[in-house]
Design a binder for these strands. Sequence first.
RNA 1: GCCCAGGUGGUGGAAUUGGUAGACACGCUGGACUUAAAAUCCAGUGGGCAGUAAUGCCCGUAUGGGUUCAAGUCCCAUCCUGGGUACCA
Length: 694
Amino acid sequence: MRISAYAERLLRGLDTIDWTESLKETQRNWIGRSEGASMWFNVDGHNDLKFEIFTTRPDTIFGVSYMTLAPEHEMVKEIVTDEYRDAIEKYISDTSKRSERERMAEVDKVSGQFTGAYAIHPFSGEKIQIWIGDYVLASYGTGAVMAVPAHDSRDHAFAKKFGLPILQVINPKDELGEDFDIQEESFDSKEGTIINSDFITSMEVKEAIAEVIAQVEEMGIGKGKINYRLRDAVFSRQRYWGEPFPVYYVNGLPQMIENEHLPVVLPEVEKYLPTETGEPPLGNAIVWAWDTELNKVVENDKIDDEKIFPLELNTMPGWAGSSWYFLRYMDAGNSEEFVSKESESYWGSVDLYIGGSEHATGHLLYSRFWYKFLKDMGYVSNEEPFKKLINQGMILGTSAFVYRVKDTNKFVSKGLKDQFDVTPIHADVNMVVNNELDVDAFKAWREEYNDAEFILEGDKYICGSEVEKMSKSKYNVVSPDVIVEDFGADALRLYEMFLGPLEQYKPWKTDGISGVYNFLKKLWRLYHNNDAFEVSDVEPSKEALKTLHKTIKKVREDIEKFSFNTSVSTFMIAVNELGAQKCNSRAILEPLAVIVAPYAPHIAEELWQKLGHSDSVSVVDFPTHNEEYLKENDHTYPIMFNGKRRFELTFPIDANPKEMETVVLAHEKTIAQLNGRAPKKVIIVPKKIINVVG
RNA sequence: GCCCAGGUGGUGGAAUUGGUAGACACGCUGGACUUAAAAUCCAGUGGGCAGUAAUGCCCGUAUGGGUUCAAGUCCCAUCCUGGGUACCA
C-alpha cells in the first residue's frame, strides 16, 4: 500500500487536527520528511557509470572526503577493483549474516570496506574514495551518501576509524568559539558560515544550500529533493487470523472472486495457529476451496484445478478493518455500500476519538491515510477522520509487598525490614487494607505460608507498596466487579474520574473510594429525611441558588475541557454546601439531579423518578447557569506587602480603587507592616489582590 | 543519543490570563453519639521557630539562577521519572 504517496499530506494534515502534541510529533518523526538534494557522481575510469546520492546538506559539498554505498548497492560489484574484490565480498557476506537486531544493538560499532574505486567531485574534479559501510541503508534514499565527516557525526566516526581526511567547510557561530576541534568532533549544526568552498564561501548555510542546488540543476547533475522515512507496507498478514482475501489460484495465478459472490466468510478451524508446514492459520481449514461453478467455498479435497481451486491462505492485516471501521457505524445496515452519501454527509468525521498513544504509528496513521484515499475516491467529504483525539491514561495497580527474611518463613513488617536481610514478595492486594496485612488471610493464601511467622510493628503487619501495571503475576489486580458489588457502579464510575486527569496514568487505591461513596450517600440524604423521600416546594434560598448555579457553570466548563476529576470535586462541594444550608428545595434538587446524571447515572435516575418524573433524566436538557445568582456584593482582598500576604480586608465589589488604597494605607496593620517606610506604590487588581510595595 | 510529556503535603490531586499554593478527597489525630464496635457527625492536619493563648515570623511547588510590584505558572541551565524512536544521510 503506497502510504508513502500520502506522506506530505499526512504531515501537513497534522497542523489541522486537535491531537496531543506528543502524538503529532511521533507521527512527524515516523513520516520523517527531510529536505535536500539528490546528485549524480561519475565513477573514475567508468565512463558509463554514475550513481545517485541523497543529502540534506548540499552546502557541505566541498567537505566530501569519501563516498559510502550500502553493502547491497547494485553498483558495488561493478566498480570494485581486483585488489579489493575478496575483501569486499567478505564484508558483504559478513554484514548480510548479521541480523537486523544485531545491527541495531551494535549501533556504535563502525565497520566498512574500501572498494578501490573513485568518484569524481563535480566541482573540483578531484578523486574521492568509494567505500561500502553498513551504516548506510539500502532502503533509504538511494542507498548511497556523500560523506562529510567534518559535519556529520556518523561520517566522522567512520573517517576516524579508517583514517580518512576530515575537511572543515563550516565555521561555527561565534559562541561555540575558535577552540572547536573538528578532528575530534563533527559540527552538525546549520548555524555557521561556509569556508574553503569555492563559489559558496562566506555564505550562510541556508543560502549555500539553495546556491548548490541551483548550480547542480544547471549542470544537469542533480536536483532539490524531499525524502520520507515512511515506508510502504505489504497488505497481508501471515501468522494470524484476519479478514480473508477473495482470491483463488488457477495454476498458481491469483484470480479475484466476482463482487456478486462476496462476502467470502472465514471457515471454522480447530486452532488459530500456523500449520506444521509453516502455512498461515487458514491452512488448517478443511473447507477452504473455491468452486467456480457453484461460486461458493467448498471442501479442500474437492480441488481438481479445473473447476475447484485453492483459496488464498494469507489474510488481511489488522489495519484492513481498523482503518475505516468507524465509517461503517454511520450506516451499519447498508448492504450496498459501506456508507451512503447521505449518512456520510450527515455524520462527517469523528468529533472525538479517545484512544491509546500506542497506536500512533500504526492504526492512527493508517486511518488517516485510508481516509484521505477514500476522499480522493469521492467516498468521504473530509480530509481528516478524527478531529480531536485524547489519549486516556491507564489505571495502574498498587502492588503490596511483604518482606521475607532470607532462608526463613518469617515475614517482617515494612518499618523493621532494614534490620534484616529480606526478599520482597508480592502479596495479594485483596488481603491488604490501608497497608495493613490480614495475616490470617495471608497464611491461608498458599500452603507454603500456612505456618508463616510475622514480626509485627505494634500489633500490625505493614506492607510496602509500589505502583505498577495491573497484572495477575503481581497480585495487584482489582476487579471492577468486586468494586461494583461493594460500592455500586456509580461509585466506581465517579472514582475512576476522581482519580485524576483523563490523560494521566494514575494508581488505583481502593481505600480512597470511600470519598466518592460518602458523597453519594450525602447526595441521597439531601432528598431524604431519615429514610423517607422529602423535597419541598419552598422558594430556594439565595445561597442555595448560588451554590447550584456556580456548580452548573463549573461543570459545564469542565465537560468542555474533559476535566472530569474537577467536576466530581465540584459536586462534592455543592453537596457539602447544600447540606450545611439544609436545602431540600425542589427548585435546587431537580437541576442538581440532572447535572449529576452523566457522572452517576443510576442514583440520578432513581432520584429523578422519586421527584415524580416518568421520563429518563438522561433526556432532560442540561441546565444553564444564571449569572444573576453568582453576583458578589463584596470581595475579600489579600493585603500583600511586596508580594507577601499579611492580612485581609473586605471591600464592596464596586469600590473605588483610590478609596480602597486610602483605607488600606490608613489601616493599623499596614502602618505596623511599613514600620515607618513610605509605600512606593500600591497595586490594586480588582477582585484579585492588593499589593503594597515599599 | 534524539524527540515528547511530566516532577506540587504522608497519598491521589486542585490552582482561569502571572494575582491569597495545597481546593476536593484519602489517610492520620482529637472529640460527639454508643455498653462496645460499625456507621454517622464535628474539629484539626505542608514544615519550622516564638508565645499560656490570640497570634506573629521564617521556609516551602525537583535543583540553581533570572525577569516581575507579584512566579507552581514566564525565561535560562541542570537533575530525575515516564513514553516514543533507533545509523533515515
